[in-house]
Amino acid sequence: MKLDVRTIMLMLSGINLLGAGMMALISFHADNIKGARQWAAGHCCMCIGIFTSTQMSPEWPLWIIGSVPLVTGCGFGLIYNGIEAFNGKRCHYWFTAWVGGQMMAQSLWLGVWLDDIRMLVIANSILFSCVFGACALNLMVKAAQPLKTAYRLATVSFAFIALMSLLRALNMMSKPAQEISLFAQGDVNPVFLVLGGLSQLSISLSLVMLITFRLVSELREKASHDSLTGLLNRRSFEDESRRLLARAIRTGEPLSVIMIDVDFFKRVNDVHGHQAGDEVLRRLAALLQTIVRSEDCLARYGGEEFCILLTGTGEQGAAQLAERARLLYSELQINWKNEVLHSTLSAGIADSFNNGMNLTALVDAADQALYRAKKTGRNCIALHTAVSPPAKYA
């Protein structure tokens, strides 16, 4: 069955138009996602360029003949820029201008002045292979699931088009020049275009997946983390703590909980304002992150209270960490509107050896110890074993 090359190219144009529409809608409604606007513009340019090339005639003015490959090449470059923006990098728009200019120069020199269609197809195919190969390389980044899946699909799609373009160039090199035209109906040329069209559709879908999974990841992050400090919120802390508790029960290792509260926090809000209070909490959260191990669990438990669950640590080890946090925080100077704020904290500690492998019991015990620390003058730590006799859980 013979495949009409112009029909296939019109299909490619339609795929790019669909991709441009999807990306434009996404960029309007999710402006926090970088790269969607570049992808929308890139798909639009490729749509215009591919569609116009199917209707092109030698009688057209030279400036129109030259502008078609320029627009198409800029479309490829904008897809690359979108990947840069999505990855949080600075966009190199000179690359887009270079790809468009290179494609226009090749088309005018090889297609118009030399009238060598064979060399034009080879040169453009090599250029496409280089651009899509660069896109694939920029998509090879580390990411967590489900974003990792979208990155891999996009990488494979771009790499496949790069490979197809290179194979097309090699195929054209092996054929006589008189047998080659832009819209040849041979057995190979349409096959390359069909495979390219399917890969282009895969690229559009994978880019949409990248955006969708990025939004899902951000929503998940917002749902599980405190917006002010960036720490886990109370619900996420409880979920993570249950996992650590289950592991501790299997391994037999101890657990400790530290409850931390900022001393006279209401006074900070009343005297300096709530924004100053927010800065105090942010600075304390940042300090705690520097001294807590990656395997431990740190969260803003509520208001000015923070909670730390320490794995493989008994009451005395947790007390050492709490005392270190207290000393560091008491020495911390917080600059706020030409003033220096000083603040202190109190902490209560409890462990599983004296309170059992139950999160509620551990938190309650640490809270009782915290209450004792506040009653004895604040800016100190207290152990739960000093509040009530130890019960010695196995």
Rank of each mutant, 00 (worst) to 15 (best):
L70E: 06
G101T: 13
K222W: 06
D187W: 10
A136Q: 10
C44V: 05
E59V: 15
M11W: 11
P190S: 01
R6Q: 14
Q316E: 15
L198Y: 04
S217V: 04
A143R: 08
W113H: 14
A36F: 03
R235V: 08
N355K: 12
L321W: 00
L328D: 15
D270W: 05
G303L: 06
A41K: 08
N233K: 07
G19D: 10
T52P: 01
L201Q: 02
K266I: 12
S204G: 05
A162W: 04
C307G: 10
N171S: 14
A347P: 10
Q55M: 14
I64V: 15
V68R: 02
I249W: 04
H384I: 12
E304H: 02
P190I: 00
I126P: 07
D187T: 10
S206T: 00
A85I: 08
L110E: 02
L147V: 09
L232R: 07
M9Q: 13
A40K: 01
R220C: 02
T311L: 06
P176S: 12
M357C: 13
G317A: 02
L327G: 09
S57D: 15
P254L: 05
A144I: 07
L201D: 02
E179K: 09
G42W: 06
S57R: 15
L359A: 09
Q178N: 08
S241I: 01
G303C: 06
L201E: 02
K175T: 10
R118E: 06
A285V: 03
S388T: 09
N171H: 13
K222N: 11
E238F: 09
D4E: 14
S199H: 03
L321A: 00
V156C: 11
T229Y: 02
Q333T: 12
S206Y: 00
M1A: 03
T360P: 07
S227G: 09
S157H: 07
S57G: 08
S57Y: 11
K374N: 13
A134D: 07
L195W: 04
M172F: 13
Y371V: 14
E339H: 12
S107C: 01
V71A: 07
R250F: 02
R118P: 00
R242F: 02
V131P: 01
W60P: 10
A105V: 00
E253L: 10
L153W: 12
L25A: 13
G88S: 00
L62S: 13
Y371W: 13
G42E: 13
V68Y: 04
S67H: 01
G75H: 00
L215S: 09
F237N: 05
L137Q: 12
N379D: 06
T155C: 13
I26H: 03
M11A: 14
S202A: 14
L284M: 05
M22P: 01
I180P: 03
